[in-house]
Design a protein around this nucleic acid. Structure first.
Length: 418
RNA sequence: GUGGGUGUAGCUCAGUUGGUUAGAGCGCCGGAUUGUGGAUCCGGAGGUCGCGGGUUCGAAACCCGUCAUCCACCCCA
């Protein structure tokens, strides 16, 4: 038997209603905040991701699905959505358009990781990107959108954490201080963090190993090395969040895994998720557009993991066949009459189903019951003779006759009045 | 890439220190009711015990390998 690829899951009909709820909620909120949908390819030239995400990040170093095109060029299945969106923004010269450039996207992403709870090789994200606005209110707007949509879905135990990464120059000034401190503490750090001292010292602050946390508790803080401009920006973001009533907690250890973030960075986690507890995250990336060859363009955005949101939604959310009419056509004459009535109902916009395998009224009713249909239209040979079909309410068992000639108007009326 | 858990019917799982023909619940099909669903009762179908090798008179069980899957590390949405 050919099986699906490791870490790549089917979303079966039982689960798609909750997915639709998530996607529709996200879309509705994004539109409410003035974002417009963009659809970009799921694969791009490899260099795009290497340059934007950062060559030394785990994603680029070991998690990308990269392959050769027939002409030998290197292509990659997108590991996240920002790079492609920025590429499209530059390629179509959207910067020349005076309107606010605020996009949202949704779709599959690909990372070659070991699967576990809440982590797949093909997973789905919804994300937004706001281009061209350096104003801290753009940060607030994006965070507010994220918080509103998660709250709307009533996802449990959410926390919004936020941090200020400052400008690149701020981090450059801070890094030697941190490295010097970490070298003193080296014996208390885990092997991973020892390696990170040179490669990516900021990440040591984000380590979950308890001894590392203790060792870095009194480390010099990035916050103390920030420029006035960076402080002012962050201060305005926090004030803005207070103004619109979004609860947050400061986390000076919060460091995002993608290289392009600067200034504001944030993450929403849930304690109901397991080890992979981030539902969504984002931040400001003012230099990315320029890095990728576009004009200087400030930008801020976030992405949420749809699988992780789906995990938090109650299982009870399921399909309802309540408004559906089951057509039970049986017998030599009833069967074709039922088939034609079925089509009539559908053409009239009434949701109608049947089971062509069922030949007796009994088995039809059983199927109607299983499908959760509230009504069954019974058409046997007798009904064809009299020209009157039987319309049965499955809950009350009340049956009434409807003329096959005026079927649609009568059924519509009965559905309306129920 | 590393570590641990689990692989038995469509699903969830039992299966005793290794012992005859591998079980249950749910689901499915049929009947009790030949034009009226759900409930109940009766009957039935459905298994290479993940795969390969080994130990043994005998393996679902023990050993080795392998694959799959889940969880965790790492990292991230």
């Amino acid at each position: 038997m050919i099986k699906g690829i490791k870490g790549v899951k089917d979303i079966l009909p039982e689960e798609t209603p909750r997915w639709r709820l998530i996607e529709e909620t996200a879309r509705r909120w994004a539109l409410a905040y003035g974002f417009h949908e963009i659809r970009v390819p799921i694969f791009e030239v490899t260099a795009l991701f290497a340059r934007s995400i950062g060559a030394s990040t785990d994603i680029v170093e070991k998690e990308m699905y990269t392959f050769q095109d027939r002409d030998g060029s290197s292509l990659t299945l997108r590991p996240e959505g920002t790079a492609g969106t920025v590429r499209a923004y530059i390629e179509h010269n959207r910067a020349a358009d005076p309107l606010p450039q605020k996009y949202f996207y949704t779709g599959p992403m690909f990372r070659h990781e070991r699967p576990q709870a809440g982590r797949l090789r093909q997973f789905h994200q919804f994300g937004v990107e706001s281009f061209g606005t350096a104003d801290p209110r753009a940060d607030v707007e994006v965070i507010a959108l994220l918080w509103r949509l998660l709250s709307d879905l009533k996802l449990p135990a959410l926390t919004l954490e936020i941090n200020n990464l400052g400008y690149a120059a701020d981090r450059d000034a801070y890094r030697p201080q941190l490295v010097a401190y970490l070298k003193q503490q080296e014996e208390h750090l885990c092997g991973n963090c020892r390696r990170r001292i040179e490669a990516n010292p900021l990440r040591v602050l984000d380590c979950k190993v308890p001894t590392c946390r203790v060792a870095t508790d009194s480390a010099p803080r990035l916050a103390d090395s920030l420029s006035d401009k960076a402080r002012a920006h962050f201060g305005s973001v926090l004030t803005g969040l207070d103004t619109v009533g979004i609860p947050y907690s400061l986390n000076h250890r919060l460091v995002r895994g993608l290289d392009y973030y600067g200034l504001t960075t944030f993450e929403v986690t849930s304690t109901s998720l397991g080890a992979q507890n981030a539902v969504g995250a984002g931040g400001r990336y003012d230099s990315l557009v320029e890095t990728l060859g576009g004009p200087m363009t400030p930008a801020v955005g976030f992405a949420v993991g749809l699988e992780r949101m789906a995990m938090m939604l109650p299982e009870t959310l399921s399909v309802s066949g309540a408004a559906t009419v089951y057509v039970a056509g049986f017998g030599d004459r009833g069967s074709p009459a039922g088939f034609s009535a079925l089509e009539e109902l559908r053409v009239a916009g009434i949701r109608a189903v049947t089971d062509f395998r069922s030949a007796s009224l009994k088995s039809h009713l059983r199927q109607a019951d299983r499908l959760g249909c509230k009504f069954t239209l019974i058409i046997g040979d007798d009904e064809v003779t009299t020209g009157l079909a039987t319309f049965r309410n499955m809950d009350t068992k009340v049956q009434q006759e409807v003329s096959l000639v005026t079927l649609i108007s009568q059924v519509s009326a009965l559905l309306q009045s129920s």
